[in-house]
């Protein structure tokens, strides 16, 4: 059963994330962590921007926050976000592929902590951050979903993942939410029955 969903996006993410969040079931309890590339000085702007699109609680990660259900965590600007078993950690190590926060760092540490119980989602983006992390996540038994590059505002990021990894799902943006609902809620139903 999935323990954590990690999502990475760059250019176009501010259009894509609201669509994705609106299609998530309010019953979804699997925690979600998001890296959206953004300017190093941007503060809580992203949180305020996204909150209207979800009833789940939304939070910018603070150091050593425990990973809680029914919560969406945002990587703070100018920090790497790392998964450390059942909590988050932050670092100001050098940027990875020019990015801090780096999608690769989030995905790789999610893979280490949760392996096959992690789901990685790569949305629109104009660079290749995430390609390495998604490959690692897949190699550790996790599930990888990408936004169909032909429907992405900027196809480079999901296409880079596709070139590197045999992804589990290639979906238009509007169907990614229901896929996540299915993966996380269906498993639970079959367990309880």
């Amino acid at each position: 059963m999935p323990q954590l969903i990690v999502i990475g996006t760059s250019l176009g993410g501010l259009t894509a994330l609201p669509v994705l969040l609106q299609t998530l079931s309010p019953a979804l309890s699997t925690p979600i962590a998001i890296v959206q590339h953004r300017h190093r000085d941007s503060r809580s702007g992203l949180l305020d921007f996204l909150q209207p699109y979800t009833t789940l609680s939304l939070r910018e990660v603070e150091d050593k926050d425990p990973i809680q259900p029914r919560t969406i965590y945002l990587a703070p600007a100018d920090y790497h976000l790392l998964v450390e078993s059942h909590q988050f950690a932050l670092s100001i190590d050098e940027p990875v592929s020019f990015a801090r926060p780096s999608i690769d760092v989030l995905f790789e540490t999610a893979a280490e902590s949760f392996g096959k119980e992690a789901i990685g989602v790569i949305l629109t983006g104009a660079n290749q951050d995430g390609a390495q992390g998604a490959a690692t996540l897949k190699a550790q038994g996790g599930t990888v979903i990408i936004q169909d590059p032909t429907t992405a505002e900027s196809p480079i990021m999901p296409a880079a993942v596709q070139a590197n990894t045999s992804v589990d799902w290639v979906l238009p943006l509007t169907q990614i939410g229901s896929c996540l609902n299915h993966l996380c809620l269906a498993t639970r139903k079959s367990r309880s029955s």
Partner: peptide
């Protein structure tokens, strides 16, 4: 030291 960063480094 926190393990996740330490491992990466």
């Amino acid at each position: 030291y926190a393990r996740s960063s330490l491992h990466r480094r």
